[in-house]
Design a protein around this nucleic acid. Sequence first.
DNA 1: TCTGAATGTAATTTATATATTACATTTTAT
DNA 2: ATAAAATGTAATATATAAATTACATTCAGA
Lengths: 66, 66
Amino acid sequence: MKNNLKVARIQVNLTQQQLAKKVGVTRQTISLIEKGKYNPTLKLCLEICYAVNKTLDEIFWVDKGE
Amino acid sequence: MKNNLKVARIQVNLTQQQLAKKVGVTRQTISLIEKGKYNPTLKLCLEICYAVNKTLDEIFWVDKGE
DNA sequence: TCTGAATGTAATTTATATATTACATTTTAT
DNA sequence: ATAAAATGTAATATATAAATTACATTCAGA
């Protein structure tokens, strides 16, 4: 479950803590998502995208098989 | 939680049943997602995208506020 | 028509995303 | 160097995605 969240988050200058607050989850959830150890829900993915100004494809898309 | 799954599924000529089998969930789960009454996980979203040959943005993106 | 396939949906159960608390490690600035 | 901030991660609890079973409704073809 790899993704580009960490880079995008840093681009908009947010700590995990700040992003977590913005999207309404805990810091741990953000940390685990960045580490690829979580399978977040669509709603959370969307809220994260809004917070870092990216689309789903830009942050969460992974090609089949990879 | 609106999305474009129903249209995309029909474009590739799959019934809910067939799509469900392809992505490894039950027909009910597909039905509820199409109806916008579910908040699927990212992994399932991705598998659905692979099955209907679309990207996350094409099927599941919704603009902030809408 | 009518018959079966496709779909909508409800109740209950099970699996897992997320919260909470807590502590350790790593970074960063002083 | 050191202290604080940021991050990684574990254990347990809670909320909810998804399964299961079941039945009703819609729709296309014979």
